[in-house]
């Protein structure tokens, strides 16, 4: 496949762009392509800005956070509201909310992408295998996937996390295993669609290995639906991590985790609503960012 002939969503490049040679250089680099794609859709741009904001917060949290995230100060509880020193106030234990939000961004933006990447890797391998090989391998993979999907998601999390304990690793593992069957299904669908196309047959004639055909010839065709799904999945995963934190089976305290911050303080919403509302707003904005990005990309894929 000609790499420069398609945009990042796998749709054909529009004539106007392909006709302008000076644009071509930009398309070679991933950031250049992404920027071009974002500029086409205001909604994706808006989502991208929110996500970028939180990524910067997460990356630079140790330097920009005004206080250590777990520093207790009982004296501050006398006046926990936002002030010049503590912009968003302090929580019920006197910990600075801005600092905890920044460090919390770090947690969620590490766990969510790792979990989604894990799910994507497993899902892509299984989907390619099921679609390309077919037969009993296909039947087996899809059957196991269906059984996993028959479990209501949140109940599966509860069973596994209650059994093996709450840790970042276990959360990643659970998300990987629950999301992989869905990704596998997407990849399998595309694989079934293209595996008998001429260019795949040509690769087989050339004597390319099965691995090469699966990953180099077939996988790029699934790029469009995969990218959209991955952004949506980042959003879901963020919600899941937040929800697990809220239920008290998320990342262990005291390290800041947005869902956990809401859980610890929502009983005090009548007297100190800001302690609950800020972390709730933080997680909502990040998920909105991911979902808007996905919506924008989806629209672009349809128009392409």
């Amino acid at each position: 496949m000609n790499e420069t002939g398609r945009n990042i969503l796998g749709g054909p490049l529009s004539d106007t762009v392909a006709a302008k040679p000076q644009r071509k250089a930009k398309w070679r680099t991933v950031p250049g392509r992404t920027w071009f794609a974002l500029r086409q859709s205001p909604i994706a741009m808006f989502g991208g800005i929110i996500v970028a904001f939180w990524i910067i917060c997460a990356l630079f949290a140790p330097w920009i956070a005004p206080f250590p995230p777990n520093k207790l100060d009982a004296l501050l509880i006398a006046y926990p509201y936002p002030s010049a020193e503590h912009w968003l106030g302090v929580d019920n234990l006197g910990r600075d909310i801005v600092s905890r939000l920044l460090w919390g961004a770090r947690t969620v933006l590490t766990v969510a992408p790792v979990a989604v990447l894990g799910a994507a890797t497993l899902g892509i391998i299984l989907g390619l295998l099921a679609g390309y090989r077919g037969g009993w391998i296909d039947a087996l993979i899809m059957r196991i996937g269906d059984t996993l999907l028959a479990f209501p998601r949140i109940i599966l999390y509860l069973i596994i996390i209650a059994r093996f304990g709450a840790s970042a690793f276990n959360i990643i593992l659970v998300i990987t295993f629950t999301a992989a069957p869905i990704i596998a299904r997407i990849v399998r669908g595309v694989t079934l669609d293209v595996r008998n196309r001429d260019y795949v047959a040509a690769a087989r004639m050339r004597g390319e290995s099965t691995l090469y055909i699966m990953f180099v010839e077939i996988l790029p065709s699934a790029r469009g639906p995969l990218i959209v799904d991955l952004f949506l999945r980042l959003g879901y995963t963020t919600v899941t991590i937040g929800a697990l934190g809220f239920l008290g089976v998320g990342l262990p305290p005291p390290d800041p985790d947005w869902g956990g911050m809401v859980k610890e303080t929502y009983g005090m919403i009548f007297i100190w609503p800001h302690m609950t509302l800020f972390p709730a707003a933080a997680i909502s904005s990040l998920v909105i960012g991911f979902n808007f990005l996905a919506t924008g990309l989806q629209e672009m894929a349809r128009d392409a």
Binding site: G242, A243, Y266, T276, L277
Partner: peptide, 17 residues
């Protein structure tokens, strides 16, 4: 899209407030 993006616990907390 905004409604579907706000986690249930956050939505619950907003409506509570």
């Amino acid at each position: 899209s905004v409604c579907a993006s706000i986690p249930e616990f956050a939505l619950g907390v907003f409506l509570l407030a």
